[in-house]
Nucleic acid binder design. Sequence first.
DNA 1: ATGAAAGCGCTAACAG
DNA 2: CTGTTAGCGCTTTCAT
Lengths: 334, 334
Amino acid sequence: MNNKKISIEDVARRANVSITTVSRVINNVLTVSDKNRAKVEEAVAFLKFKPNVSAQRLARGVNNSIGLVMPGYPGIFHSYYAIELIRGIGHACESLRLDMVFHITNGFNPLNTNNVGGVIFADVIENRKQVEAAVAAQTPCMVINNKVADLDVNYIAVDNVLGGEIAADYFVSLKHKRIAIVTGNLNTQSGYERLKGFKKVLKAKNIDLPKEYIYEGDFSRRCARLAAEEFLALKNRPTAIFACSDDMALEMISVMNEREVKVPQEISIMGFDDNPACLFSAIAVTTIRQPLFKMAEEAVRVLQSIMSGKQKIQCKKILPPVLVVRESCGPCPQ
Amino acid sequence: MNNKKISIEDVARRANVSITTVSRVINNVLTVSDKNRAKVEEAVAFLKFKPNVSAQRLARGVNNSIGLVMPGYPGIFHSYYAIELIRGIGHACESLRLDMVFHITNGFNPLNTNNVGGVIFADVIENRKQVEAAVAAQTPCMVINNKVADLDVNYIAVDNVLGGEIAADYFVSLKHKRIAIVTGNLNTQSGYERLKGFKKVLKAKNIDLPKEYIYEGDFSRRCARLAAEEFLALKNRPTAIFACSDDMALEMISVMNEREVKVPQEISIMGFDDNPACLFSAIAVTTIRQPLFKMAEEAVRVLQSIMSGKQKIQCKKILPPVLVVRESCGPCPQ
DNA sequence: ATGAAAGCGCTAACAG
DNA sequence: CTGTTAGCGCTTTCAT
């Protein structure tokens, strides 16, 4: 198989012009006569010629592809978070005509950053060493949704501490006193920081957050179910629960339904993400919106300008999440 | 920025050997003296040299990357199906040291197949033209989970007709007479064929499948909720429902819970996929298992041998799905 | 407007 | 075991 690929030379021969001219037309350089352009186009179509991208990249000295590095831990690809990032990055690459080299890392096998023009890291905790290497090698890169204060690297992130604060503030404004949280994976910055912001506000308001009101989860529906059951079994059951992802909130609401605990009359449940699923569930979920898709798109855009730009670009952006009030949270009962 | 990249020549100069020798050591060719190998390795480490992949690909004439083409319709990336495929392919690429170029297609902007050594298509319906083009261009390719009988292309798929049959057979064996289905997206082969197999068995068993027992869905939780509500509103409500994805089955069970309809005592619900979430829900979901992850891995493996192999490889494999009995289906009530 | 020629960084005969 | 020498397919000066 693999009967010889047709090259620019074949096209030139058939069109009876030089390969330079062919190169010009496939690159939309204007200084080509209409006559020659037509001949080349005919030959390209006839031979079904497609430029060899490796050769182009080598000759141009630039690489129009970006690597997306994500950690491979279980469940991540079934999270709204990761999928929205992938969608956003994929979408941006599509419109910017970049190739997206998707690399699921296990810690070993780092992405060969010489194979891409730049790279986006979607989770620093797991991939920190790779980020450091990329920075050291001066590979253009962007970090998404993780501020890396101690590294000189560009990032775009959501303010997760603020997210936790917003959740706690809202519950407090609703007069809740027994407020619980099921956290995300605390090894991720988003998991950790949401808890941090949440605690901070409760402390400031002098509301106790006992250990049994903190369930250490991992963003998954499964642990949300476990958490819900544990909270319900408490002698002093909470009247409000902050679930650090919408998936978890949704699952908790299901459990409440099964147990015939009314949401929000008996218990308030708040999510995080603004997953569209929040709107189609039995009860619309009050949540905290974070602009995942847009963040991803912007990361690509910035990365591209880093890749092409002569000037050094600084991008350390932190986006605020926003509260979306719907039906799953209500005033404290009794 | 972009202070000149170091090349193989820089390494050779520092190690005081020819570039050929450097090439040999970075490619693990054994015919290099220990002394030279050591010198080269030192230089590589010192200069942080990474080979330019584009140059390698050009020189070698082969391309160790594969394209994964998936349609970009809404919701696909939030389906268990798509994600398992991506995971499986990503995993296989990782261990085979292939780059995975992930391409979400909107119908325009087809993947430049000259940029990859081969391509995997994960949904033929939407991408048929691209598959045809790839076949015509003799690009090594594999089609996943869609038999394309009329194209000379390799594929690996699940027998979805059989899946539909298994579902219907099981309900029949449980003595159900009023059997409904909420389908997947009927524009996908899996959506269409499951319905087909389902209908076929019911017809053979002389069980009526009225229009109102067929809800045309799209694999999403949202439509499952709508379907459940519609079925429950029927004068003659079904006693068994086949949901063509586990996500849909799970959502239907939630609705039943909200409406206080007992599963499986009053109504049986079957899913499809064998999503692990089936095990952690309130009631373990009876489902039909399809080997998504393994199928994806195998597709990569076959594709790689097509890419490297001299001989033409034929792969037209259809895997059978299997019934997994759990708790959400029971005998017909009354 | 066009083409000749010199690379881009690396691999792979081929000699030695 | 090592180095010389052609390319791989394309872009890009630089003449013309």
